[in-house]
Each structure stands twice: as C-alpha cells, then as structure tokens.
Nucleic acid binder design. Structure first.
Lengths: 251, 251
DNA sequence: TTAACTGTTCAGTTCGTCCGAACGGATTAT
DNA sequence: ATAATCCGTTCGGACGAACTGAACAGTTAA
C-alpha cells in the first residue's frame, strides 16, 4: 500500500471504497474487493463501519453512497460567502445569455464548480456542483490561474500536469503562461474546445481578498461565435464579476 | 472507544474529526483534539491523511471541510431519479404559494432534504439540501412515516426516539400512530409548530415503487392559516405529488 | 528574553486492523 | 432433489500499523 509517513491507512482505504461505490453507482462487497484488490472481509469491515456511521446505504446486498455527504458538502458550500454572492449573478447571466453559466473556485489546484445555471437553450454537459476539473484546459481554470502568483501556478502544474483532453488543449507550460498574460491584460479567458470538442467557454475571474473564483458562460461552437464570443458575453461576464467583487467587499 | 465488533476504528475517528471541523467551521489540531479528547498527534495523523486525499483544506493552521464532499453529495443526488423529477414541481409550487417549498427522502430513519425553493415571500429557515431532520416532528417526516410499514415505523422510533422540540411536538408513540392513520386517510400531513415555534408546514407523500419521499410547503403561522392552510396548499401539494408519482412511473 | 501558545516529528508499544478460511443463505445448474 | 456456485458474513489469530506522549520547532504575547 502506498502509505506516507504518519498517516492513517484505514482512512485511506475507507475513502477508496467510497470512491468505488460512487464510480460503480452502488456495489456489493465482492465487487468492491476485486476492484481494489483487497480481501472482501476487509471491505466488509469498512462498509460495516461506514454503514453504522450512516455514510453509506445498504439495500439488499448492495452498498451505495449516502446523502450524508450531501449534508457535509452543502453545509460547506452554504458557509462560503462567495456562493451566496455569486448565485444571483450566475442566474441572471443564464437568463441574459440563454446558455449554461457556471462559477468555480480553486481547491487543491483544481477547479471546483459551485453553481450551475442553465439558460433557455443551454446545452447540458457533464458539469454539476462539486465537480472538479483541471485548470489548464478550462476557461474558468485559466481565469483563476491568471490571478494566482506564478510560483503557485508552477506548483499546480507540477502536481496535476497538463493532460491533453482535445487537440486544442494547451499542453506546454510556457504557452499556457503566455496565454495567462494575455488573459490578465484582456480581463477574461477563452476555452476554444480545449476540454470538450464542440464546446466553447468564456470566463472572467473574481478576485476578492484571498479568494479567487471565476464565472463562465459555455455553449456550442456553432452558437458562441462572432460578436457574441468576442463582445457580448465578455462584457456581461466582466460586469457580473465586478458586481460580485463589490458585493463581497461589503458583506 | 465505543467500538463495535469487526469495524474499523480509525475510520470512525476520521469521520468524527470531520464532523468537528464542520461544527466548528474550521479548527486547529489542538482544538479538535480537546473537543474529542484524543491526543493531538492522533488528530494530526488523521488530518494529514485527509489533506493528502483532498477531503479537507488547510489554510494556515486551520483545517476545514473541503468541497470534495460536495462532489460526492451532488453526484449522489443527481443520480437519484426522484431528484430530477421533483425539482420542477417544487419550483412551481414555490412560485404558486410564494412560500418555502422542500422535498425530502427517508434515509437511516431520518428525513433528508433534497431540494429547497424559496417563493417570493418565503421565510428563510435553517433548511438546506442534505440537512437531516427527525421524522416525528415535521410534516415531511410524518407524511413519510405514514407510508412506511408499521414495523419499520417502530424501528425508527426505537432508534431515534421522539425528542421534544417545541411544546407542540408529539412525544407519545401511540398519539403519533393515531395521527399517521389520519394522515393516511386525509392524504397529507401537518406540522403545527412541532419543530420550530411560529412555523407551520403542510406535506404530501410521494410513493413510487419502494422510494418514499414527501413535498412540503412551510411558512409563518401568521400567514399559513384559514383556507390557505386547509384547502389551497393541500390541494396544490397533492396534485404536485401526483405529477411526480406519474413521472416517476414513466421514466 | 521568556513564556505560552501553536503544529509537527519521532520512536516504542500495544492495540486493532487485516487477512484467509470457514460458515450459512440464496440462487442457479444439474 | 441435489449439487454447485455465487453471495455476504463471521471468526480468530498474527503481524503490522495506529495510537500515544514526550520532545521539537516555529509564532505570537508578555
């Protein structure tokens, strides 16, 4: 087992089991055991514990992730000032643009979506609150990176790498840094099908005394183009981000 | 330590630490250690593990619950058929009534809110998605209990008890069961300030092949009264619950 | 400078986790 | 019917690892 010094292996195992339950959308003891290549009695012990603590559910012989995590997660999100402040803005942005609007914050070098609003004609993609994405291949992520100090950017790139997601993904650190410079000057970031083919995004950073977040509008390449891509959406985003920054300052 | 047979104590400790972090809204090693009365080096080991696994955050010397739990929780909620189906209904109910609308499911003998929509004049109370409440003192909970088999009801009451929350809380099992009978006949449930003083709720159950959920409308005693309390809201709830049941059947 | 806080490190020891095999129940094949 | 093969669960023993408490280092207050 890959165990660091002075850490609790059992905890690691428990969370690994939970991740498997999530990935398989519920599973039995044997399935989890073979997935992780550990004895099923061990898996059973962990699941028994998680069941008693009410973190997982058992229906018949199938264990699955319980809503206790939603309690922890929602509680955490609701305590974030940025969440309360950003939500009305993403909502009106979704109305005005008709597209999908997201907000994200940085955590452990990744982007975490905290809100999601669908406009009238929004495409439903694979985003949901809590979902984590790489920073280098999303408009949200690049907007955030552009506002972080360079040493921190290097740290993040070292830790997570720059995996190629589409043929447009930026995989060279220097190229990325040049783009971050452009984003800083321009004030907003683009994702030109760098994470998902056919999907374009525009994002603006929100910088508020330590916390860095970003707002984005996403839509299909066929619709997000021309003035919409280069003028209208950027302007709406910048003013929304500005409103959030002001409201954060006086909250 | 209260350790059951064949369970993993370390896992229990980790989750206990996480709960403390939630309750204190972030805390240091020493604070957590004294809260749980365990050595701080132990706490440190657990927090180190949770940090490496990205489940908690560390800002300076303060550890806090991370958004990883939101990922697990939201993912779980989004996989629930009932969630997708119920959301449009709670939204329109909130518009029509102007009050706070919630939906909850049963899990481990407790009610767990899965959606929340605020109408125009809704009072903001302490509910949020993922929040857990007792079943015996909420309209949502009683609506759910009324649809569960009696042995299961006894099990739940044994496990969780019937703590008194206000002077109106029903604390006698027989009295509760009589009310559940009334609810079954009438089709919907009331909360007459049984959980929070000044707050009234009406709730209707949603029964769909195994899953039991409930919808509720909540508001201040001063506004939720008369025909509103006895006719309008119940009718809206029943038809909304019915729509959900039908949509669940054909999904 | 000192004192009183932090969080962190470390090493020893005991405790509890992990494991493999055996059990019992349910389902399917023979 | 009977056997075979799944499943989840139980058990006890052994070894590894989690817990512990004291010492360390870094920070703030006196």
């Amino acid at each position: 087992m890959s165990s660091q010094a002075n850490t609790v292996n059992a905890t690691r195992t428990s969370f690994r089991i939970i991740e498997v339950l999530k990935r398989l959308d519920g599973a039995g003891v044997t399935a989890v055991a073979s997935e992780l290549d550990i004895p099923k009695s061990t898996v059973h012990n962990h699941l028994q514990t998680l069941l008693e603590e009410r973190y997982v559910l058992k229906e018949g012989d199938t264990y699955s992730v319980g809503l206790r995590f939603l309690e922890l997660g929602e509680f955490t999100r609701n305590r974030m000032d940025i969440y309360e402040t950003v939500r009305p803005e993403t909502e009106t942005l979704a109305e005005k643009t008709g597209e999908m609007v997201n907000a994200a914050v940085e955590e452990h070098g990744q982007g975490v979506y905290i809100t999601r609003h669908e406009g009238q004609q929004a495409v439903s993609v694979d985003t949901y609150a809590g979902k984590r994405v790489y920073l280098h291949c999303t408009a949200l992520g690049k907007a955030i990176l552009a506002e972080l100090p360079e040493p921190r950017v290097d740290e993040i790139l070292d830790e997570h790498g720059m995996p190629q997601r589409t043929e447009n993904t930026i995989t060279d650190p220097d190229e990325l840094k040049a783009e971050l410079e452009t984003i800083r000057e321009r004030g907003y970031a683009y994702d030109r099908e760098e994470r998902l083919p056919g999907l374009r995004c525009v994002a603006a950073p929100v910088v508020t005394d330590g916390v860095v977040a970003a707002l984005s509008v996403s839509g299909p390449t066929t619709r997000i183009k021309g003035d919409m891509f280069h003028e209208e959406i950027p302007e709406l985003l910048l003013s929304a981000a500005n409103v959030v920054e002001i409201n954060m300052a006086y909250s």
